[in-house]
Nucleic acid binder design. Sequence first.
DNA 1: GGAATATACTCATCGAGTGAGTAGCTGGAG
DNA 2: CTCCAGCTACTCACTCGATGAGTATATTCC
Lengths: 195, 195
Amino acid sequence: MSQHTAYTASRSPEFALLGFLAAGPPTHGYDLHRRLTDELGQVWHASQSQTYAILARLEARGLVCSTVVEQARLPARRLLELTPAGRAQFEAWLAAPTGASIRAIRVDFITRLYFAARLHPELAPGMVQVEINAARAVLHDLQTDLAATPAVEQRFNRLALELRIRQLSAVIDWLNTCTIPEGDSHATSGPPALP
Amino acid sequence: MSQHTAYTASRSPEFALLGFLAAGPPTHGYDLHRRLTDELGQVWHASQSQTYAILARLEARGLVCSTVVEQARLPARRLLELTPAGRAQFEAWLAAPTGASIRAIRVDFITRLYFAARLHPELAPGMVQVEINAARAVLHDLQTDLAATPAVEQRFNRLALELRIRQLSAVIDWLNTCTIPEGDSHATSGPPALP
DNA sequence: GGAATATACTCATCGAGTGAGTAGCTGGAG
DNA sequence: CTCCAGCTACTCACTCGATGAGTATATTCC
């Protein structure tokens, strides 16, 4: 299909950076890094140099292209623009379901929601439901694994599995709160109550 | 204190490998990799070559030393042994509290419990309690962050924070199950109940 | 006898991530 | 009015994480 295998849990904010370019006018690395830390700072953590490295790779792969723009007094900017290939990859990533690992949901899925809200807001509720179903399936697998793990020799693998099960259950609870219509979001529903 | 800054959430199984050497006789990379995947496979995932790379780095840092042992018919083994420096670092890591991030607990903390159970079983309950307190403190910080995050412009940072809060709460619940005395572990307490 | 699996390790390559550096401009405190 | 902090904008060097393929012999099982 595409040159690259799949969208299974990218571990760098490359699609977030593509997304800023897909959802707005061409801009430069410094600004993209600022927006990443301002608007998705609880989701992604990339240093400035890391951001530039990712952008260089995206350009090497032909997903963005750049032109250097001199400025009167400030340093020159490398203005970045999405290529058609870049836009296609981004849209494909946005449409594909997130892998149901916990990290993937915390990071990729929230990013997808963020850009869906800006580009295709009508798709968001369906995305949440797809994730819920995927997470339920993974939860079931984990419980099967747990049942197949002997209590004595594998005590610590069991502990790890039990923790993952609890975490995934928490994810599903959280996903259920994401389906609440976002119209009057701040009025009635408080943050998740905790004792 | 030591040459390296701190034990804040190592992201490779280096201490697990040191631990196998600390808790047993000298052995070789192939065996260490097998034990890592068999006994802590739900905690760490390292390819074989990754394991060898880590061991090479540990040797370069002087934490292990190696001697090549020829065998009659099978490939030669590089027999690995903990140096005094390596043992000291491992014991220091075992005694230091795990950083309270979710990943750190799922990975580092379970590993510490695993080796504590083998080397200093009397310390385990205290370790759990220390983690619970640390996690409660982090939870409090997250809730403070959430309260300080505006609902409108920062909607997705809020979502991420809410998820982290739920996950950390799940971690604390799980930690509380770890304090149950491990004598009659398999009899009464089932796995975490899930609807 | 031939395929699969086990033993034991090596190498090349790429991406993640850090930290420091460069260098001119702007705004406010003293 | 001057100096320093901080902003704008990007670069470089380096280490570690991670994958995948390769090497070469030995046993096991059908």
